[in-house]
Amino acid sequence: MNAGVMLRDFVAWGPDATGPTRAVALMRIGLATMAIVRFGAEVAPFAAETFSELLLGLVFFIFAIAALLGVRARLSIGLLGLTIFLLYGMRQAGLGTAGWNHHHVYLLGISCIFLMFTDCGRSYSFDRWTAIQSGNRVLPEHGILWGQRLIALQMSALYFWTAVDKSDQAFISGQRLEQIFVWSYSGRTLEILLASPMLLALMSCAVLVVEYFLAYAILTRRHRATAIFIGLSMHSTFYLLLPVSTYSATMMLLYLALLDPQSVQKFTKRIQEP
């Protein structure tokens, strides 16, 4: 295949992507819910100590609820993403609460912003419901999806760079995983996992291989089904074994971005309209 054809295929897959919108609508609902779960208790009015914090909390909840319900969906999910990045930036500047500048917060924020570049309000939204109720022109459940492709690229890059970070002797030998387990499990039931350094080394190598594989495979049609199964299994394991906050749950939700939007549309139609 020559470079021109590859570029044309990439443009069709990426910036020119269009298709059914139920998958991105489900992602919008999921990400808004995830944001409320992650920040709700920390920015809620009851926790505010200053007027600025109260205002910040109100802004966060307005955008989060609007994104969840699909009120001016693209705008609200984008503004929710920007609000999450405001919290992220505040922590980078030494303000706010510890953890706001963590990777899972960045992932949540950037995913909301990328979802703004999809027609995520054309399905499962207040916008659609009001258009139907009022008898106005209802837009089809079909639209631009290039933001969905950016999310897929972000996932691939995340897997690649986290694998790069692990590509050293300290990780492959199992030492870094042992450190994590010493911190997490000392004095707890799962301390038994520290008994076998060989097992830790095997687990480390497995994680490294899987992350490099996922970086490539989630973007290929040929390996996608295998990659989704392996990726969801890995994130489920992380969620059960480590205090990862909303990271694993967000990643699992973002796997919707890897599915064929047409397949998601067909599946949801089949279960909703038997």
């Binding site: 990777h103 010493v182 911190w183």
Partner: peptide, 14 residues
Amino acid sequence: LREWVMFSGVGVGI
């Protein structure tokens, strides 16, 4: 510029 180095510091100093 976000770096993806999740959990790399956990256990450091223990």
